[in-house]
């Protein structure tokens, strides 16, 4: 049974190339929007506050402050509508889910940047 799930996930997940990112990182998601027959790309830039699920059903949530209002958007990682994901900044956080960000604003909502990231060959 577990093998079946693993096999199907492997078949479905394809070979999409994304930068490695996790909660706390600042990313830009370029998302395809279909309006009638036209297609355009909308970008959503914010902090990842959650990564969830595995295999073909993985999702992640991006939070940003837009005009003083917190906006969260959930993306299925393997959605064909995701054009690209850009990693802007690595964040230094101590948790996998940053829901505490919802109660914070302004200075206290800042996420420290992870510096001195070891370069990978």
């Amino acid at each position: 049974m577990q093998n079946a799930v693993a096999f199907v996930h492997e078949q479905l997940t394809g070979k999409k190339e994304f930068p490695k990112f996790k909660a706390g990182d600042n990313v830009t998601v370029n998302y395809k929007i279909i309006e009638g027959t036209k297609e355009r790309i909308q970008s959503f830039k914010g902090d990842v506050i959650k990564r969830q699920g595995r295999g073909a059903t993985q999702t992640f949530t991006v939070r940003k402050i837009s005009d003083g209002v917190g906006v969260e958007r959930l993306f299925p990682l393997l959605s064909p509508n995701i054009d690209s994901i850009l990693l802007n900044k690595k964040g230094r956080v101590r948790r996998a889910k940053l829901f505490y960000q919802r109660e914070r604003s302004g200075k206290s909502a800042r996420i420290r940047e992870k510096k001195h990231v070891a370069a990978k060959a």
Binding site: L12, A56, S79
Partner: peptide, 11 residues
């Protein structure tokens, strides 16, 4: 269970 994407992006 799992999920699959349709060509239009619907999960």
């Amino acid at each position: 269970m799992t999920s699959i994407f349709e060509p239009n992006g619907k999960q």
